[in-house]
Design a protein around this nucleic acid. Structure first.
Lengths: 219, 219
DNA sequence: TGTACATCAGTGAACGCGCGTTCACTGATGTAC
DNA sequence: TGTACATCAGTGAACGCGCGTTCACTGATGTAC
């Protein structure tokens, strides 16, 4: 399991190193791992504290309560998703459609590498999200919108055409569903066992390419 | 909240009516409602028993333990999903593409009406599924495959071409992602508040149509 | 038809468990003078 | 530079809670003779 949390070279914040070193970061990382192992349903604040080598009351100083911790994890995850989208886009090269395909691949790769947090990000919120969470989520969304703009020849920042709006909904749904089905093991019948990654990297670009063509080249 | 469980005219099984009437069915229905309200994470066997007006130990006689109950709920839900797919397909009329679009609409409609069970169906299984569950899930999957066959002009039951295989993955991902995002409230920024249903019924067929065109009419 | 018995879906009390959160506390770090 | 004090991230014991499951039981239903 790889981390999307930046492991800080020295200190994330000067105030964070009083006793533990950087407990806030340690708790976020332990949470991401625990989510990957047990899912949101199996998540527990005490277990996270245990894994960080700290008493069960310690996390409260940083996150208030268990929902505060999960919200912070989801916020970090959205930032990491945005980074994965940008990375995928860059790999697409210069062509606008290829860049959008790359972005979609980045979306699915992120979900497959960080299944626990991915599930958390998109669960229905029990309580109102923090401004930081909303900002991080919208940041990722805007990347997709911009990618669709480029493909439809809409200048950056300008309003989307109705057709482009359908494009956003279509491509987001496609990558999101692909990601969800892949991490739920629903593609295991299509891919040879143990080679899901390879199957995804063959199938997903073809799927995205066809969808983009259908959206843009419509009669 | 509407039920997808058939409410039996008299008795589902002659043995089911000893004391309660049909406790098995009552527990399945209470479970679907509770899942819709609280999700898998907030699900509890005791609460289901409470709502069915029965002692906490009663469900064990029908389902063994809590996982047995959830598995039975998921199995019923897959059967109901298949029915919704068939219904949507029929509404598509005679044209193969329109029928496939209709099937996709049926998929999303089911998810929006039965959010709790839908989430349950596609969660990663903690334990091996029952043969009944696998059968129900594969039944729904085969409907989609047949719909794609018709669109690609492949005779029923024949093996899928590579391109058709990509088509299955694409369309399943598209409707699944659309459904998940819709019930998670992620489309609320696109649809006018309170009219998600209307937005879906305008956007989803357009998205599906474009994707199918891109898949079939590819250069 | 009547009677004795087997079956089994229900009860309700009890169990042990892990949970999130609280509370008074401790002790290291940072700051003011 | 030294000292007194404030701050605050940690401890660890304790709380009350709802959970899934167990167990011996009850009593209605179905069956054999």
């Amino acid at each position: 399991m790889r981390h999307f949390m930046k492991t800080p070279p020295s200190l994330a914040s000067p105030r964070a190193a009083y006793h533990h070193g950087d407990l806030r970061r340690a708790l976020l990382e332990a949470s991401a791992l625990l989510l990957a192992e047990r899912g949101v349903a199996g998540f527990s604040l005490r277990e996270v504290a245990r894994r960080a080598g700290v008493s069960p009351a310690a996390p409260a100083h940083h996150f208030g309560d268990v929902d505060g911790l999960l919200l912070a994890v989801a916020t970090e995850a959205f930032k990491a998703l945005a980074a994965s989208l940008r990375d995928g886009e860059r790999r697409g090269g210069a062509d606008a459609r290829a860049r959008l395909v790359g972005q979609g691949v980045g979306y699915v790769r992120f979900a497959m590498r960080h299944e626990g947090p991915f599930r958390l990000m998109f669960r229905k919120g029990d309580r109102p999200a923090s401004p930081e969470f909303v900002c991080a989520a919208e940041g990722a969304y805007r990347l997709l919108e911009d990618g669709v703009r480029a493909v439809f020849g809409i200048i950056p920042g300008a309003e989307l055409t109705p057709r482009a709006r359908i494009g956003v909904a279509t491509l987001w749904s496609l990558v999101h569903g692909f990601a969800d089905l892949a991490i739920s093991g629903r593609f295991s019948a299509m891919a040879e066992p143990g080679s899901l990654d390879r199957w995804v990297s063959r199938t997903l670009p073809a799927a995205l390419g066809a969808a983009i063509d259908g959206l843009v080249d419509a009669r």
